[in-house]
């Protein structure tokens, strides 16, 4: 039934056109580009683009630094995402527990960092970590957060600092949506606040926790602004430190075909991983 065909076209076409042009077309174009390779006849002959099949993908899979960077962001995610979501959940449960006075103030205070874009947050923390400029030079000289051993976790702290409040707000709003009667039965059974949180509240807000986890996983694999900024502060961050930095470095060479193949692999990996998180945690 399409009684309102012209209205539907009017409503859907503008978004649909832009979506096709700037979402679907680039995906298709990236796949197409990744199947080509540049060939030269002789050492100094003119460069020609020829169909190379999966040659670029062979290069991607043989690229040691790229897989090292994938391993690095996975390690980052395995530690940082649970810590961040755990902290967000703890703060949301505390706000909801009735134990905290001044809820409004704390909610706002924790949310403020989210207004600061990743690039600027990374610049601020870069100064804070610095062995000479930091307000905590005694600490930063002793710990050296910008050295090779710790710089990944220094970035994890920046990401956590920005996003805890945002994730807390998602979980907290889910908690607020729960009707209070549900807690009554548990209270009558003598459950304390900890027991109530663990056995009743957490299962109820599970969808919200899953949502925050999926968005965090997507964000982790795309890590770019923080390492790119930290290159100015720390020599330990290489030009292929994260997968997205590799894409950027490869496209600056320029080797667009290989960079396109990196992009495609990265997009597929992100989709697969978020899908897995979604499936595992809603089972």
């Amino acid at each position: 039934m399409t009684r309102h065909r012209s209205a539907v076209v009017f409503f859907v076409a503008p978004f649909g056109t832009l979506f096709a042009l700037f979402y679907l077309l680039p995906i298709g174009y990236a796949v197409a580009q990744s199947l080509y390779t540049v060939e030269r006849t002789g050492t100094f002959g003119p460069a020609r683009e020829v169909f190379g099949g999966l040659v670029q993908y062979q290069r991607v899979f043989a690229d040691g630094p790229f897989w090292a960077s994938v391993g690095r962001v996975l390690l980052f995610g395995v530690v940082q995402v649970p810590v961040m979501i755990g902290l967000a959940l703890l703060l949301a449960l505390l706000l909801d527990s009735g134990l905290v006075k001044g809820r409004r103030f704390f909610r706002l205070a924790f949310f403020v960092p989210y207004a600061i874009p990743g690039v600027l947050a990374a610049i601020m923390w870069g100064f804070l970590y610095s062995p000479t400029l930091s307000p905590f030079t005694a600490l930063t000289r002793a710990i050296a957060p910008l050295d090779a051993g710790l710089v990944l976790w220094a970035m994890a702290n920046v990401v956590t600092w920005v996003y805890v409040g945002y994730n807390m707000l998602i979980i907290y709003s889910a908690l607020l949506a729960v009707p209070p009667e549900i807690y009554e039965a548990a209270r009558i059974d003598g459950a304390g606040p900890v027991r109530l949180a663990w056995s009743v509240k957490i299962p109820l807000v599970r969808p919200a926790i899953v949502l925050t986890a999926v968005f965090s996983v997507i964000g982790t694999l795309q890590l770019l602004a923080e390492p790119q900024v930290f290159r100015s502060f720390s020599s330990a961050v290489s030009s292929t430190y994260t997968p997205n930095l590799t894409v950027y470095a490869t496209s600056s060479i320029p080797n667009f075909h290989l960079a396109a193949a990196f992009s495609v692999v990265l997009a597929l990996a992100t989709c697969a991983l978020s899908f897995t998180v979604l499936k595992v945690s809603t089972r």
């Binding site: 399409t2 795309q222 997009a267 989709c271």
Partner: peptide
């Protein structure tokens, strides 16, 4: 509105949510 292709459009758009924005930058 109910119209043919409605669910297809919605699912394609929803798939778009999962595509990381940075993967689009280079293409």
């Amino acid at each position: 509105y109910r119209f043919p292709g409605r669910e297809t459009i919605f699912n394609v758009v929803l798939g778009g949510v999962l595509v990381p924005a940075t993967a689009l930058a280079l293409p």
